[in-house]
Amino acid sequence: MASGSESPRRRRHVALILLAIGLALPGYAVLVDEPFLVTLATRIVVLAVAAVSLDLILGYGGLVSFGHAAFVGIGAYAVGTGFFLDFNNDTLLGWDGSVDVLLIWPLGVLVAALVALAIGAISLRTRGIGFIMITLAFAQMLFFLVQSLRWQGDDSLALWGRSELPDFTGLDLNDTTTFYYVALACLVGFTWLCSRLVDAPFGRILQAGRQNEKRMRALGVAVDRHRLAAFVIAGAGGGLSGVLLANAAEFVGPAYLAWNRSGELIVMVVLGGMGTLVGPIIGAGALVMLEEYLAQVTEHWQIVLGPVLLLAVLFARRGILGLIEALPGDWMGRLRRWRARRSGDV
């Protein structure tokens, strides 16, 4: 249990170390001449946004949502639709599409949030297995819906480029490193927002409701609406991830909404450490790297991945972050003293 103040402090340090790694990564990739690392890191960062957002409802709300990929898909399809209409000079309901980051990205997030509002309002009437199944059912409905879409004959769409930032920024998202840093900024910003949220009264009430709903009601708060709000914010985060994903892969297809994608997001959250925000980022990194490297070793990599996950769940109940926080010795203190000495020198 996250008791006392030691764990959260370590968690902050872990977050800072991750941020440092994230910032330094493109430089390292150049150094070792492995440009592919940036692409891989981008994928991790993008999926981490979805994993962090899922943690809000899964870790903090205590509700296993098995349809989170739907919101990722909605964000991606918003980007895809904007591109498609713009490229083909087509219109949909009078909209002629857009590739503008400032328009299409918020739009993707907003639509995902609205759909989350509708799905959440219905799903949150259930608990436990019921909630798992109904969120899965909604995600499957959306999956089959987008599968029936045809972009000039095909059910998926390859984009001819990435969303465009306004000229005054001087940034071109088609540059791999630029896009990576923009995605990283999105992850950092969203995680920071979530960290404020979970420590604020709203988040604490949400967590108290997870621990003991009956007690929360007796204290005068029916947590349903707090859960719905968390679900909507989580959906918006999923949408943000989808917007980034479509741009990262320059591809939009129904696979983004497949149920096993939702499962992978749950695995990231649980593997990294749920209810920690930082954990799911670690989980996203661990899962993507495992997949990447296992796939190089054997094409049957999923056979290896399964037992690895099983071991992780059995022996690291609080995830990878839990292991890090339980590390013996005061290595955080040593780091702090080292920092203090350094700043003392200056």
């Binding site: 249990m1 996250a2 008791s3 006392g4 404020r196 949220l197 604020a200 009264p201 709203f202 988040g203 604490r204 009430i205 967590q207 108290a208 621990q211 003991n212 009956k214 007690r215 929360m216 007796a218 204290l219 005068g220 708060v221 707090h226 709000a229």
Partner: peptide
Amino acid sequence: SIFPASSVRDNVLVAVVAASGRTWRMW
């Protein structure tokens, strides 16, 4: 019926916040 994983103080703090009605503060 308490919130076992939270600190003793946070148990009461949540009750105080619930009573105040300011449960939607997000920042």
